[in-house]
């Protein structure tokens, strides 16, 4: 009985999240997320597999892209708001040098150690619909949502979406 009640609770939360997606977010088909193994700018190894059990915000960007630059302070704000064990925020820079990335992020999002897709091939595999783009990977490693382009993530409608999301396991 407890299991049924719990399942209904999770189902209700899922419906709440997907029923009213905020502008620019689309539901994906829940296929497995592509492999994602990169080094960060601080030379730390990262593998998406290690993030199973929590939602992951996988964000592709480049410093030359205007909307990416405008969005980044809002992502830094999210990074401060969410426990990384609940919603892990991963930035993937597409094919730029350390100097370029540090020159921009150092001032705008100093707390985040970005992953460096140095040759751009991981981005090619993930195929975001342009830059910037954010995929939401669920705790079991499936692609659930895609945010097209940049936005103010701290707006109420996006915060509500994110808060509902992290309630789902």
């Amino acid at each position: 009985m407890k299991k049924i009640v719990f399942s209904l609770f999770i189902l209700t939360l899922s419906l709440q999240v997907s029923a009213a997606l905020p502008p620019g977010l689309i539901k994906l088909d829940g296929r497995d997320a592509p492999a994602l193994k990169l080094k960060s700018m601080d030379e730390e190894n990262y593998d998406l597999k290690q993030s199973k059990g929590r939602w992951v915000f996988v964000h592709f960007w480049a410093a030359w892209c205007g909307p990416c630059r405008r969005e980044m302070p809002k992502i830094q704000a999210l990074y401060s708001k969410f426990d990384q064990q609940t919603l892990e925020i991963i930035l993937i820079n597409t094919a730029e040098s350390d100097d370029t990335v540090f020159g921009f992020l150092g001032a705008v999002a100093p707390d985040i150690d970005p992953l460096m897709d140095r040759d751009g091939l991981v981005t090619e595999v993930w195929q975001p619909r342009g830059l910037p783009a954010t995929f939401f990977v669920d705790p079991s490693g499936k692609l659930q949502y895609l945010a097209l382009g940049g936005r103010d993530w701290t707006k109420a409608e996006y915060m509500q979406f994110l808060n509902n999301l992290v309630k789902q396991k």
Partner: peptide
Amino acid sequence: QAHRSTFGWTLMPEVRDLRTD
């Protein structure tokens, strides 16, 4: 490769089903 990738991302996509907004 990194520069090919950057150049590629600056090109207009050949095909895209643009959603609302």
